[in-house]
Each structure stands twice: as C-alpha cells, then as structure tokens.
Write a protein that binds this DNA or RNA. Structure first.
Lengths: 235, 235
DNA sequence: CGCTGAGTTGACAAACGTCAAGCAATGTGG
DNA sequence: CCACATTGCTTGACGTTTGTCAACTCAGCG
C-alpha cells in the first residue's frame, strides 16, 4: 500500500494540489508508489499508453531517437511534474530515470475519468501543458540557433536556478554558487544536441576563462554569473 | 459584424465543433472576423495577451529570435488551428502571416470564461495541446540531429501530406504529385534551422537526383516518393 | 593490480554558414 | 513602353564550427 497523500513530498506542487479531500482519497485508492532505478526505462516510445504518474523524487528524461540511433532528450522531468500521455493509445517518447526516482502511478483511463469530474485539476493540467509547450518551443530556438558555447552556458545557468530553488543553498548576489549536475556529460550532450566532446571542451573553456570552477566531475561553481549570462547570449 | 458561424469554413474542424447551439451563439456574439495581410505581424512576443483566435484561412508562423537577430520559426498554424496564449499575461512568441489570412478573434478573458463552462471544449483544447507538444518535441529531434538533406526532404514530405489533405488532388500510389509550397526559401530555412542557401542547394540536389522536379519557384513535383522518404531518414 | 566507465584532449574531416556575384520575375515611375 | 529597383532564388569560393576518431587520464572497485 502506498504511503498516505498527507505525507507526499510534492503534495502542494503537483496536480493533486487542485483536489479536494474526497477526490484526493479517491485518487489515493487507485494510485500506487513505484521506484525506478537510475538508468532504468519506465515507458518505451511506441508502447501502449496505460499509465500516467506524478514524479515524487528524482529526475527523468524524455527522449527520442532517429532510426539510425542518434538520440535527443526532448524534455526533463523534475519532482511534482506530470508524466505520461493522456488521450493517446501509444507513448510517443521514451521515459527513463537519470537518477533513482519515485513515482505515484495511476492507470490512464482512471485518471482521465477523474479529470472530467475535476474541472480545476483539468485546468491546472492545461495551464502546465501550455507552459511546457512554451518551454519546448524556446528550446527549439536554442537548439537550432545557439552556438555550442551559448548552449552549455545556458544549460549551466538553468541547472543553477533549479538547484537554487530546490536546495536551501542561496546565492550571494554576485558571489560564487556551487551545485551538483544531475546529468553526465553524455546526457548534457543529448539535451543540448551536441557531442560529449564538445560539452567537455566548452566547460573547460569556461573554466580557463575563470567563469566556472569544476571542483568535482559532477559539481560546478559559478564564479562569475554575469560573464556566464553573457556567454549564454542573454542580455 | 462577422459572418454567421454556420458559414464558417472550419466549423467542424475547429474548437467550436465541441460547442452546442447555445454556446456557439454566445461565442459568435463576442467574436469578430479579422483579416491579416501577408507579411503582417498580428501578435508581438512580449506584448499583453489580450486576444485569442481560430485561424479560418491562410498560414501563420510562430517565431522566436535570439537577442542578436537570429530567427527560428517554432510553429506553423493552418486553418482551424487555435491561436494565442491562454492563462498568461504576455504573448511568448510572435505571430505573423505567411500568406493573407483570416481569423475569428475573441477576447482572451471571455474565451477563458467560456472554457470553464464548456468542459468538452476545454478537453478538446487539452487534447490538441498535447498533440502540438508531441509534434514540437519531435521537431526538437529533427532540428538537432537531422542533416540538412534529411530536414529538407522531410519538410517537403510533410507539406505534401498537408497539401494532399487540403486539396482534392490525390496522389496516385507511387505516381508524381505536384503542389505549391506556402513558404519562401527563407521561411523554410527559418523552420528548419538552416540558411536560405543550404535549403536551395538541398532542393537542387534532390532535383538532380530525379527525386523532385521544381516546375515553378514555389511549386514542387514529387517524382519518387520512396526515394524522398529515404532521404528524410524514414524507414 | 588490472578493469571499467566517465571525462579530457588532440588531430583531422565534413557539414554548414558566410560572403559575393549573378539571374529571373515583378513592379514602378518617367 | 522602357529603364530601373526590388525581391526571391541559385551557384560558387571559402572559412568556421562542430563532429569523428583515437589516445590518454583518473577514480572507483573487485
């Protein structure tokens, strides 16, 4: 039996936040907790769309591949994000775990039925989907028009913002910030549409320029946030 | 005063198809027809999100640009498509007309209010937004991992499918198909994340290979659909 | 102590962008 | 009716960016 919703880490950030007590109890009865290990694939592109989920902890990737094996990560999912494809028979993209992860899984048909009777939840999902669409379209610009240097600098910035939001580690204005990247070089390359070598070269270039320090292989210190923003092509 | 909804060319394909007679009359009262000339911009990125619309005829582009002027078309809108950004204060992307176009425009706040009382329409919009998101994510893979040859071949194929669906011109299986491109070379380049010269070169390469004929500057004849699909990296 | 996987670095090649010239179709004003 | 400008398109020469291939380092681990 899954833990109670009252204990849920993402209770107030997920779609469930729009539910009243009755609806929440109902959802709790049909949902179950599931753990996914780092590297494991949870949903395969092309498979039947039978379940959806809320991500409780960890980071998932959404990926597509060309017929000859070139891969592209088309989305990243963080805790409280909604996972799965409603109103479709098949899953369009593969969902895999970049870190160990925990989900609250619900059968798709049951979830769709809940949506029709919970207008507030449906509206929240609609709003989030619009926001995701905007973010995906913005990434279209980045992937096709930004240089490798701009992509890597922008990626580090976006991960820094996310890390700052999640951890309590606060950035002194202008002062150095350190955080861990939840992705390997290869995964960063798959997000940015680059190769692992190009990502590595751009990071060392930023280190030599004094913009970043790389104390560990997965940790990053931003030493000059303004310069980093400039490299990312912002302002 | 706008023409009556009964005459609407996209009556059965647009969001309005989910409305009953009463709701349709209500929407008709708050909507108005608007014409946009080829090249004209209808909504500017960053401006207030005050209206939304249904596209009645023509083709619109949704575009973003880097701070130094590199442009990327992040979406194309065809008749019956929903235009605008609900549930946000500002428009995220610029909307411009690639051809002369006609729209049915509604104030955003009124439209949002109608959505809350028309669950079926809201669900249809949610379904369409999911489909658009999937298509946009698929384009992420194409833009970052496909070669110029694959991009151009795939684009011609997708425009052929759309032209076939809209016109009555049916493809003989395997036989040649001719249709008009609604975009200039420069606009195709902005869609595919290439330059105008690369698009031009790839098209002439396909012509020399006997895959395409280019009878007019805007018209295309597919002479070997199987070869074109192969060039696009499909099958 | 060798093995493995992730990362770094270098040499080289290919793809694509940039710059430039020229052509064809269309429109405009004298 | 014609000179002329404008716009979209094509083609060529060349340079830059990024991918490819390969060697090497480093840390963790049995």
């Amino acid at each position: 039996m899954s833990a109670v919703c009252a204990d849920c880490a993402v209770r107030d950030a997920s779609l469930c936040s729009s539910l009243g007590d009755d609806a929440l109890r109902q959802l709790h009865r049909i949902g179950r907790r599931q753990r996914v290990a780092r590297g494991e694939t949870m949903l395969w592109a092309g498979s039947d769309s039978l379940v959806c989920a809320t991500l409780l902890s960890g980071v998932l990737k959404l990926s597509a591949a060309t017929s000859d094996g070139r891969e592209q990560i088309v989305g990243l999912h963080f805790p409280s994000d909604f996972i799965g494809r409603l109103y479709a028979d098949t899953i369009p993209f593969t969902v895999s775990a970049l870190t160990d992860a925990e989900l609250c899984v619900v059968p798709r048909d049951r979830f769709e039925a809940m949506l029709t009777t919970n207008g507030e939840m449906e509206r929240l999902l609609l709003k989030r989907t619009f926001a995701t669409l905007d973010a995906t379209r913005a990434r279209l610009l980045i992937l096709s028009r930004n240089t490798a240097a701009e992509k890597v600098a922008g990626f580090v910035l976006s991960m820094a913002e996310r890390a700052r939001g999640i951890s309590d580690f606060q950035a002194l204005p202008g002062g150095p910030v350190t955080f861990e990247l939840p992705l390997t070089r290869g995964q960063i390359a798959d997000v940015l549409g680059l190769t692992i070598e190009t990502v590595s070269r751009q990071l060392t270039k930023l280190r030599h320029a004094g913009v970043l320090a790389l104390p560990g292989v997965r940790s990053v210190t931003i030493r000059d946030a303004a310069a980093l923003r400039h490299c990312a092509g912002l302002d």
